[in-house]
Write a protein that binds this DNA or RNA. Structure first.
Lengths: 336, 336
DNA sequence: TTGTAAGCGTTATCAT
DNA sequence: ATGATAACGCTTACAA
């Protein structure tokens, strides 16, 4: 029941009294091998339960048919949807997926990249950790010629492949929806200022307000560190304002969950005293008795799929230095 | 920017005019190599940006430092928590995780196993797809001596490692909670009959009722295929019963979400006309205005961690045939 | 303390 | 159509 070393090509060859190279060729349907031999070899391989040793093949071919995927957190629906999309593309290409969660910690992210490099993955897909500032690892990766495609949370660099969501389209829709319903006093509860994602939201917010002719004086921006306490603190600030905003755009749906709960505690009635829209469009809303007014879909599956496709393009072409792709998908408001 | 082949040990050796074996040993801190040589080698390796070619090492050592994890669906919090726990253990052991989602389809599951086998993973962790009936792949895996540990959804076999949750403890608590609150008419909305998980729930249900002295005539069991429609159909049956149950245990929280929604449509008031308890203890309840009465925690992280630990035990001991572990964690009712 | 050489399983090149 | 041989990069007896 144990101890049987896996069958090798050599053993098949010996048994059949032919050479290993013939066996190899037969197994790979090489045209120059006679039909009979091919059949004989395949039959014997079957009998001996031959399984090619991929580690040897990976080694020889300098290719692992493996891509590494780095995400902040799988428990966020956004990313679990993304990974599913990636898996599907990978499966079609007969690739396997190595997984790493950065948990939004930069050093974890670097470790994972290091591991992936050691494993000689053929490519890397990454949605950056929210704390990543240092892009030096790109240099190292460039040396190894491992292609890398960023998606969702992408770096502010020119010469890299990236796929991301344009936050401003959704923001415009959100502000329009608010203003059209009579709101004049609108707040943004944004993420940490250090984040690119926050900067983008802030800009989009300002521009959208401007477009709708709302005075900036009526626009408040507060920040949260995205923890529960931070979210509540942000909400507290909003609520304590002299003229309390009646509409809030928040960083994402998770934040909104906390905001709504806090608001309720303060006796603020959802969708009456105060209205919310946030990014993500998480599926759970449909089960809530009192969902927020809307949520902005960012299409994680589309983003991830496109990113994977670009990555495989790089891999297939073996051109590490193909012109960098910069793909943007508009985000879209979904009213609840 | 391109074309540079990665540095090899040989090149370092040549540059230093010593033998490759010395370089290899120095790099691995082999005690027999002089300190000076070791330093010199390491310095040169650094300078030449040497990265060991793991594919060669994997090949040589017949080990990939990779484990494969197969889960039904990452978007279920249960499994995303599980994978995080597994990742943590793997990280400590310097292992990498290959990921595959079965999406509860048996053939996908088999494909993934095939791929993992080809990749020569050192071990496999799997929570079976809900449709998996055929355990033949175990035979094949046994031949390759790849250790495998089942968790959560485990097969009904004696001689395999498995870690799972004892559904009955939570069920007993649930039934007790119901009965103590005066409910006499209790229903179980169970999963597909083909599932082991359903059989276990059904048995636990019957036994718990018996323990509490509830007449079986007052206990209804209906099945759902776990789709939204199926869940609603199951609920409809319950609601149409002559004496409608006032308490429902359901297969899991996802099912309960649909049940509650349907109940509301029919004008049934939650936690007044009807009370719910289900398995999973999903985190979202805390944000619901009207959560069900309770949920049964199954500790995915504990299960997954233990399973991973057992797997690494198998791997480390290189004893494929260690006595099969059978670890059970009690489930626990959490009132909301 | 260091060097030599064999070998892991496969494939590709060159012969035959 | 098939065989012999080398090579991928690394480790590890065995020698020196």
């Amino acid at each position: 029941m144990a101890g049987n070393k896996p069958t090798t090509i050599k053993e098949i060859a010996r048994k059949l009294k032919i050479s290993p190279s013939t066996v190899s060729r037969a197994l790979n349907d090489h045209p120059s091998i006679g039909l009979v031999t091919t059949m004989r070899v395949k039959k014997m391989a079957e009998e001996m339960a031959y399984e090619p040793n991929q580690t040897a093949i990976f080694f020889k071919q300098r290719k692992t048919f493996t891509i590494g995927v780095i995400l902040p957190k799988l428990s966020e629906p956004f990313f679990s949807e993304a990974i599913s999309a990636i898996e599907n593309v990978a499966e079609d290409k007969k690739y396997t997926v190595l997984l790493g969660q950065s948990l939004d910690e930069e050093n974890r992210e670097l470790n994972i990249i290091q591991t992936f490099k050691k494993h000689r993955v053929d490519g890397i897909l990454i949605s950056l950790s929210k704390t990543t500032g240092d892009m030096d690892f790109l240099q190292t990766l460039a040396k190894t010629e491992i292609p890398i495609v960023f998606f969702d949370c992408v770096p502010d660099l020119k010469d890299v492949h990236k796929v991301y969501s344009d936050l401003s389209s959704g923001m415009e829709e959100a502000i329009s929806a608010f203003v059209d319903r009579g709101h004049q006093n609108i707040a943004l509860i944004n993420g940490p200022e250090s984040l690119l994602a926050s900067k983008e939201r802030a800009e989009a917010f300002q521009q959208a307000l401007q477009k709708k002719g709302i005075d900036k004086k009526n626009a408040f921006i507060v920040h949260t560190d995205l923890t529960e306490k931070g979210n509540e603190a942000a909400m507290e600030k909003i609520c304590n304002l002299a003229d309390r905003p009646s509409a809030v755009v928040s960083f994402n749906d998770f934040v909104t969950l906390d905001l709504i709960r806090y608001a309720k505690q303060r006796g603020i009635v959802l969708n009456q005293d105060m209205f919310f829209i946030s990014y993500a469009n998480y599926p759970l809303w449909k089960y809530m008795d009192n969902p927020p007014m809307g949520s902005i879909e960012q299409y994680p599956d589309q983003q991830a799929q496109k990113a994977a496709e670009i990555l495989f393009d790089c891999i297939d072409k073996k051109e590490y230095t193909t012109t960098p792709q910069d793909v943007v998908y508009p985000s879209k408001l979904v009213l609840k």
